[in-house]
Design a protein around this nucleic acid. Sequence first.
DNA 1: GCCGTTTTCGGCCCGACTGTTTTCAGTCG
Length: 581
Amino acid sequence: MSPDRISNQQLADTFNLIADLLEIRGEVIYKILAYRKAAESLAELNNDAYDIWQEGKLTQIPGVGKAIAEKIEEIFTTGKLGFLEKLTAEVPLSLAEMLQVPDLGPKKIGLFWKELGITNLSELEAAARSGKLRTLPGMGEKSEARILSGIEAYKRRSTRIPIGQAYPFAQRLISRLSQAADVVRVEMAGSLRRGKITVGDLDILAAATDSAAIMALFLSDPEIVRVKGRGETKSSVEYAHGLRAQLWVHPPERFGTAWQYATGSKDHNVRLRELALKQNLSLSEHAFTRPDGSEILCATEESVYATLGLPFIPPELREDRGEIQAALQGKLPKLIEIEDIRSELHAHTTWSDGHLSIQQLAEAAGRRGRKLIVISDHSASLAITGGLTTEDLQRQREEIDRVQQLLGDSILILQGIEVEIRADGSLDFPDDVLADLDIVTASLHTSLRQPRQQITERLLKAIHNPHVDIIGHPTGRMLPNREGADLDMEAVMKAAIENQVALEINAHPARLDLDDINARRFVEMGGLLAINTDAHAESDLDLLHFGITTARRGWVEAPAVLNTWEIPKLLAWLKNRHDTR
DNA sequence: GCCGTTTTCGGCCCGACTGTTTTCAGTCG
């Protein structure tokens, strides 16, 4: 790593890794928490830590004291960290990776390592299969079986990169490549552009009159660990963490066919080529070709589709899920756009586990054009978040009133709650408390492994509560590793529609829950959606586009989404719900 | 390791669930 290119995120990754390794070694928990706190602060910093360091103000970052500031300085100065090198000499790095296995935590990993010398997953699997784990203190047959099934789940996990990592990386890459000479435009393609939750390679496409400069710039990135192929029109590289990227360069007059081709999906492209053949045209990434060999060049994707007699099909729809048929019939949906969003209905403040005060959150939302924000902190039983008690709610209401007065009519602040759906399906607050709130989101966070029937009934019970307006991140999945609850979604959707309860598309890239498929099904059934960031920090508000993309992949149009409604319409909907319950 | 002080140490991150236990340890959210 060249020191001056180290990002806040790379620093955060480093300190999280230190925390993992220390935890496996058996360090006192508070030291580990300190590293994690520092990592979290760095990751959500608005300014470059590098600049802060140059101003000599590192210790002003929350959670960064003398020791961590010195480590950051060492990283910036030398590109290395002696402390981490010493630590990894003692605790194998492969142990940290094992933390990704569900139900396997630092204590167990440390135990297996110290008692059996296990340092990686295959050794662990072998030990579990031969019944060695059950002989250790605190272990038994069930624990051994649980670990085996955890390893299976981990192996099933895709090696693809979550969109939350791939997207910002691609953005930085594109802005860098855009500075090359002779370049007209640089764009994302592939599954990243289609908005899939994970991507394999990053596909970047450039239009340039001459490819030499941009190819050279692409290949000169110091973060590249391996060049897999290099050529005039296409090069392919691998970065640290297994991230791979390829860059194609095409002449501007052929950019449309190239971009369409590189965006895919493969199945969508097959269907397009079939359509072309029916018109005696052959379609490739370079052009349409007539039987006599002459070409039709397309500089834009619009002209590619137009040549086939089709309207433009948005990338998110290009999955061969009926979009070409719909386009032929003139029945493509008018997809929701990020500009349609007026409200944020799910966000946290320092009243629970958020990092902003009510005023800071409201102002941050206002700066992003939101006209309404719902303060929806956690309820008490999710104790780790410092959830609110009934008494807290009253005091919070007073603060909201004060902030509302201060901010005037620039943004409307409502009091909501993200109320916990307990293991038995009851809610964390009695009905009379919920009745006093402006809007209620109910969510599952615990006991997500209950059997299908039990957890479905639990969620249905919450949906039937007349005070619940929205179900937050319905399945509780966490990407890429943790699968959501085993819900009977058909029953959940039906109940939600009958009770006029909205389901959330949580926009955080680790959730995107509901997913695109369920969102599409739900809207087709007549359901209402909410698209929320679930913000815990200011930068989280900028993750909204992931939720919008997921909705677009689900063929969702703006009217089906509460957040797009004019504020009076939304308030009237809430009032009507409240009056009739 | 950080922080704040009634400032140089003591507190910080809680509770449900599970599996192993017979009173507790580990994982998760």
